[in-house]
Simulated assay, not measured.
Amino acid sequence: MTVNGFEPGESGGGPAECDGKYHGDKDLLVALSSGWYSGGRRCQRAIRITSARTGRSVEARVVDECKFPARLMQDALGLDTSVGEVPVTWSDA
């Protein structure tokens, strides 16, 4: 997992693929890799993301392809993203 923002000018790039909108950093959102994104079939669906280190989990809404969750999720999962990528698992909620 890497952490990106979905607000204008943040590391998430342009507007979200699923709805063409920007989203605030307080929303629990996720962008999935192309294979899991499935051509948009998971758009707006909830998925559960679990930290492999802490065991904590959150539900997030799929809004984009290729990038990963917004900053709020790192706090909810207790992740230290300063180490770069962190191990997580996810499943459909």
Rank of each mutant, 00 (worst) to 15 (best):
M1L: 09
T2E: 08
T2H: 00
T2W: 00
T2Y: 01
T2S: 06
V3E: 13
N4A: 02
N4F: 07
P8G: 08
P8L: 14
P8C: 14
P8W: 14
P8H: 15
G9I: 15
G9D: 15
G13S: 12
A16G: 15
C18R: 05
C18D: 12
G20D: 14
G20F: 01
K21G: 09
Y22D: 09
Y22G: 12
Y22H: 08
H23A: 11
D25H: 07
K26G: 10
K26P: 05
D27P: 10
D27L: 03
L28D: 14
L28S: 11
L28C: 05
V30L: 04
V30F: 00
A31T: 11
A31V: 00
A31N: 09
A31Y: 01
L32C: 14
L32F: 14
S33P: 05
S33M: 04
Y37K: 12
Y37T: 11
S38W: 03
G39H: 08
G40R: 08
R41Q: 14
R42S: 06
R42T: 09
R42L: 13
C43V: 03
C43R: 10
C43A: 11
Q44G: 04
I47H: 03
I49K: 01
T50N: 06
T50M: 03
T50E: 12
S51C: 01
S51F: 04
S51R: 01
S51I: 07
A52H: 12
A52P: 01
R53G: 05
T54N: 11
G55N: 10
V58H: 05
E59P: 06
A60T: 04
A60S: 07
R61E: 03
V63K: 04
E65Q: 06
K67Q: 12
F68I: 03
P69I: 01
A70Y: 00
R71F: 02
L72K: 10
M73H: 02
D75C: 05
A76E: 13
L77N: 03
L77H: 09
L77E: 11
G78W: 01
D80H: 00
T81D: 15
T81S: 07
T81P: 06
S82Q: 02
S82V: 02
V83R: 07
V83K: 02
E85V: 10
E85R: 08
E85G: 09
V86Y: 03
P87E: 06
T89F: 07
T89M: 06
T89A: 15
